[in-house]
Amino acid sequence: MELTQQSPDIGAYLAVDEAIDHEHPRVVEAATRLAHGTDTAYARAAFEFVRDTIPHSADTGDPRVTWRASEVLAARTGICHAKSIALVALLRARSIPAGLCYQRLADDDGTNLMVHGLVALRLPGSRRWARVDPRGNKPGVDAQFSLEGERLAWVAREQFNEVDYPVVYAAPPEVILHALRSAQDRSELWRNLPEGL
């Protein structure tokens, strides 16, 4: 799939905003701790750090809702959208252009459509975006860092009206951000996440 930038300016994918607060000391400290070797090695380390050390709140039953990168790192919990925001912040903290991507996914029977958050990154010198999924692995989910062939948690199934959205967003879409910011707990968030973009 050909990914397209929401903003033509690559600088938008290095910017700080309310959610992607990569100038926050907590994000800077984590980025510094992970920074060893090449840009590729750092991007992989940041991906694995978010995927493996920040549990998905649905997997652990944690009711807390996080949405700002520094908050996700402090609380060590979040849903896919929060974890994606944290990874984007870590990448931008080391000047690696990164943005947010989305899939519309359904339960195994095709019901309960929901938007799933991913990350796209573009290593300096590269001409293409690569999508990665920091959601967190569990039985039946094996997302891996790959700049060539995608190794996402899920593949969109057309028969269930699932979709891979091709846009790389520089900031979280307002509909996602509103759901995250306004939810009192994860069960309320689940009810308010959009079914599509």
Rank of each mutant, 00 (worst) to 15 (best):
R33S: 07
L34M: 02
L34G: 08
A35M: 08
A35D: 06
G37H: 10
G37P: 13
G37R: 09
T38C: 08
T38K: 05
D39Y: 15
D39N: 14
T40A: 13
T40R: 14
A41Q: 11
A43N: 09
A43S: 14
A45H: 10
V50Y: 10
V50M: 07
D52I: 05
D52V: 04
T53L: 05
T53V: 00
P55H: 04
H56Q: 02
S57A: 13
S57Y: 01
D59A: 13
D59W: 01
T60L: 05
G61T: 04
D62H: 00
P63I: 00
R64H: 09
T66M: 11
T66G: 05
W67G: 10
W67M: 04
R68M: 08
E71N: 08
V72T: 07
V72Q: 04
L73H: 03
R76E: 07
T77K: 01
G78K: 01
I79A: 00
I79D: 10
H81F: 10
A82P: 14
A82G: 14
K83N: 05
S84W: 06
S84L: 04
I85P: 07
A86L: 09
A86I: 08
L87Y: 02
A89N: 13
L91E: 10
R92E: 13
A93N: 07
R94W: 10
S95M: 13
S95I: 03
I96D: 04
I96S: 09
P97V: 07
P97C: 11
A98T: 02
C101T: 11
Y102R: 05
R104M: 11
R104E: 15
R104K: 06
L105A: 13
L105C: 10
A106I: 01
D108C: 00
D108A: 15
D109C: 15
D109Y: 12
G110F: 03
T111I: 05
N112D: 14
N112F: 04
L113I: 01
V115R: 06
V115Y: 01
H116I: 07
H116A: 05
G117W: 00
V119D: 05
V119H: 09
V119F: 01
V119K: 02
A120E: 05
R122N: 10
L123S: 12
L123H: 09
P124M: 12
R127F: 09
R127T: 06
R128I: 05
R128Y: 04
W129N: 09
A130G: 03
A130V: 08
R131L: 12
R131P: 15
R131W: 01
P134K: 14
P134M: 15
P134Q: 15
R135Y: 00
G136M: 06
N137C: 08
N137H: 01
